[in-house]
Nucleic acid binder design. Structure first.
Lengths: 125, 125
DNA sequence: CGTAATGTACTAATGTTATAGTACAAGCAG
DNA sequence: CTGCTTGTACTATAACATTAGTACATTACG
């Protein structure tokens, strides 16, 4: 079973954190096609979150064609490929991501070279 | 003048985005000690945001000892050093950051080696 | 002093987020 | 069919976020 995590103290809404975590898990391959997600009620307990919130996220992801739900059975990953926008758009988004990442790390006192080292470690796994 | 940016379509509240952007700018050195920030009204116009929202962020950052405000003059960076938590805590936070960064990038279709390359480019600047 | 610029402090209104609780619908196993 | 598990739908409530608008306090400057 995949293991998502949300931070109730974060200013980012829980539903947005969870939506993002699921999409990312699929994008990284942590969740492959046809993989089963935790049940609404189970995940709500695990995350210490209201079941409605989890249900809303699942419903939204199904509307987007990313998940498939079968009542009485469970919720599953439906699609692997996420259509990407234009190259220019991707580049712009990536630059924003990097700026945010570097800024976040700087807040913790980490420098750029340290970050590169850490990512290299990640690569070996 | 520093140039912050917030995304009104993001689920993360504007005040949280701005708070974060300012802290990060200070942490990365983009904003040094005694640097002046835009005025409440000016920044509100630039970001297309309500002045109250900006004022709230400035007030909060002053309460945290990060900014210093002088009425009729402006708002300035007060402190450079942000006290860091324990080593274990920093490591844990960093791992979360990396996971999020890699996940975000994967959503855009970027792989780990590509990210490392991009960060190396960042390093040269 | 008088004016402009700055941060600060309210109120009111509107929309979003999260929760609790309850009930219903659909599929599976016995 | 019966009972269990699953996703879904609805109401109601509370808290938070954002905006608009107005007014005030403090400082700098001519």
């Amino acid at each position: 079973m995949p293991t998502f995590s949300v931070d109730p103290r974060s200013p980012t809404p829980i539903y947005a954190q969870l939506d993002h975590a699921i999409r990312a898990a699929i994008a990284t391959g942590e969740l492959g096609t046809n993989a089963q997600l935790p049940t609404v009620r189970q995940l709500a307990v695990d995350l210490a979150v209201n079941a409605n919130t989890v249900a809303r996220v699942y419903a939204q992801l199904e509307r987007d064609g990313i998940l498939e739900t079968r009542r009485g059975v469970g919720t599953f990953v439906r699609v692997a490929p996420t259509p990407h926008a234009t190259r220019a758009h991707r580049e712009r988004e990536l630059r924003a991501l990097i700026k945010k990442f570097v800024g976040d790390a700087a807040l913790l006192g980490f420098t750029l070279p340290e970050l590169i080292d850490q990512l290299r470690n990640e690569e070996k796994k």
